[in-house]
Design a protein around this nucleic acid. Sequence first.
DNA 1: CTGTTAGCGCATTCAG
DNA 2: CTGAATGCGCTAACAG
Lengths: 342, 342
Amino acid sequence: MDRTGSNGSRKPTLEDVARAAGVSRSLVSIIVRGAPGASEASRTRVMAIARDLGYLPDVRARLLAGTSPKLIGVTYKTNSLHHADLLSSIYETAEGAGYEVILSGRTRRHDDRHAVNALLGYRCDALLIISPEVPEAELQQLSASLPILSLGRRMVHATTNVDVVRTDEAAGIRMAIDHLVALGHRRVAHVDGGGGVIGTDRRRAYRDCMTRHGLRDQVSIVTGGDNADAGRRAARRLLDGPEPPTAIIAYNDECAWGVMRALEDAGLSVPRDVSVVGYDGSPVARMAPHELTTVHQDTDGLGRLSVERLIARLEHGLPIGDVVLVPTFVPGETTGPAPAGA
Amino acid sequence: MDRTGSNGSRKPTLEDVARAAGVSRSLVSIIVRGAPGASEASRTRVMAIARDLGYLPDVRARLLAGTSPKLIGVTYKTNSLHHADLLSSIYETAEGAGYEVILSGRTRRHDDRHAVNALLGYRCDALLIISPEVPEAELQQLSASLPILSLGRRMVHATTNVDVVRTDEAAGIRMAIDHLVALGHRRVAHVDGGGGVIGTDRRRAYRDCMTRHGLRDQVSIVTGGDNADAGRRAARRLLDGPEPPTAIIAYNDECAWGVMRALEDAGLSVPRDVSVVGYDGSPVARMAPHELTTVHQDTDGLGRLSVERLIARLEHGLPIGDVVLVPTFVPGETTGPAPAGA
DNA sequence: CTGTTAGCGCATTCAG
DNA sequence: CTGAATGCGCTAACAG
C-alpha cells in the first residue's frame, strides 16, 4: 500500500461520468447541477452512475467557468464564540441558496487584511465581514469592486456603499441599564470595548441612557476590550476608584468574565455586592459559575439576513443599506438588587 | 454610483499585466510566483506594474492549472476555542511554505462529513482534520485518495494509513493526578468526554493512573462532554453520589467550567472544598473567576508539526505516522490541598 | 434532449 | 528571456 505520497487514482471528472453513462458532458453537467433540460429518466440514471464513480464536482473549475455569482467570502475572528455562532446560520442560508461560502479566519498572525486578500484571491462575488477591524475607508474602497457587507459593525459615513446588518446597540444597552436601575442601582459603570465603532456605540448609548435616567453624574467608563483579560484589568481599576460601582455593564460576555474574576479577586460577591451584565448572549454566557445576565443578539437572524440580502443584491440588485435587528435582554443570575448601603 | 449590483471593472489578469508591461504572459507568471527565470530588472519593473494595476492572482485558476500540491484543507469545530487556537499556527506554517489553506468549519448544521466534502470539492491535496468525529473507517477510506492527517485524535487500528499528530493524553492525565495526589487528594473523580477516542484515552489514563497510586477503589467516572452544560450536569450527578469527590478532573476546559458551576450551585468553594482541573489550556482556562488549573497542550507545536509533516509527505513522500507531543501541566488557582476532613 | 464549441485564468512546455 | 500552444474541469451558448 502507498503509505507516503498521494496515490494515482485520479478523481473522476464530468467527462468520466459522461463516458460511463454513454451521454454527453453537457447532459451530465445539467443533471449534477440540477439545472432544467434533462428527462427524469436520464436524471436518475446518470446520478446513480455519478454516485457509483464517486463523482464530486470540482468547485474550482465550477467557479472559474461559471458566470453567475456563487461564492461568498466570510472573514471572522476564530477565537470569538459570538462569531463562531454566526457561522452556523451563514452556512445554512448560503447552502440552501446554492452558494459556496469560503471562510477566512482572523488569527494572531493572520489579520483582517490577510483574510480579505485571501478571499479576493478566490474571486468571491461578495464579502461578508464580521465585525471588521479594517478602517472604513478601506472597506469603502473595496466596495467599489464587489459588494461588501459588514456584519455587526455600522458604517460611520453616510455616503458609504458598504452594506450593514447589525444589532441595535443602543437598545441593548438601554435594556441593560433599565434592568439595573429598576433593581435600584445607581452607580452603574461600563467597561467598554475600546475605540472601535461597536465599542463606541455601546459606550455612547451607556452615557446617553444614564443621563436619561438622571444618573449623569454616576457615569463611569473604563477602557476594556473584547476578552477576559481586558475586562479583568479594567474592573480592577474600577474597584480601585473612590466610589466602586454596584453594577457593571461589560462590552461583551468574555469581557464580563474578566470583570467577574476581578470582583472575585477583590472578595466581592456577584450579584450580592456587584451586578454584572454581559453582551452577545454567546455560549460563553452560560459558562459562568452563575448564568450571565446578558444582552442577547439575534445571531441566527443576523447570519441569515446577511446572506439573504447579499444574495438578493447579487442576483436582483436589491439594495441592502443598513439593517438593524433588536436584541433581547436575558436576565441571568449575575444581576440582583442594589446593595442596601449603596 | 452603483449602489446595488457588482460593478463592471473586471479584475486584472496576468494578461493585463503583461500587456501593460509590454512583456509576455509567461514572464509575468514567473515573476508573480517568484519562480526562477527572470532578471532582477524585469522583476522589479513588472511587480511594480502589477501592484499599480491591483493585480491579485486568481487562486481558483492557479489551483486548477497547477500540478504541484498547494492546497491544504482544514476542518475544525468553530465553537471550540482550542481548535481556533490551532488555526493560528496552521495558517502561519502553511503560508510560510507557500501553501493555501482552506477552512471548513463544523457547526450545528454543517457536520464533519459536510465539511470534508466541501474540502474535497476544492480538490485539496491533503486534509487536516482537527479532532475528527468521523468514524475511523471513513477516514481510512478517505486516506486512499489523499493524505489525511488527524490532529488530536489517535487512530485505533494499527494498519491505518491515516497520519496523526496528537498529545500524549496519558501523560497529561498523569500530571493532573500526580498533582492532586501530592496535595493529599484521594477521592479524585473524572468527568469524561464521552465515547470518542480522545475521551476514551483520557478516561483510561485516569483509571490506570489512579490504580497506580493505589486508589483503584476511589475511581469514579461520570459521563460529561466537551462543553460546559455537559460538565455541569455530570458534576451534579457526582455530587449527588454517596461520597462526593474532593477533586475533579474534567475532560476539557469548557467542561471544567460547567463543573465549577455545579459546585457553585451546590454551595461548594473551589479550591477549598473541591479542586478542579481542566484540559487543553485554551484561553477559556483564563476566563474563570479563578485561573483554571489545566493540562496545557502545545497548540503551536501541534499546528506547526501537522502542516510541516503534511507538506514533507506531499513533496518528498516522507512518512508521518503517529507524532506525539507532551503536554505541560499548568497549576492555577482551582486546585489546592485536600480538605482536612476527607 | 444531444453533442459541439468556446472560453474562465493560469501553469507549463517548447521552440525560438 | 519570448510567444504560442496545450490543458486543468467546468459552464454556457449554440446548432443538431
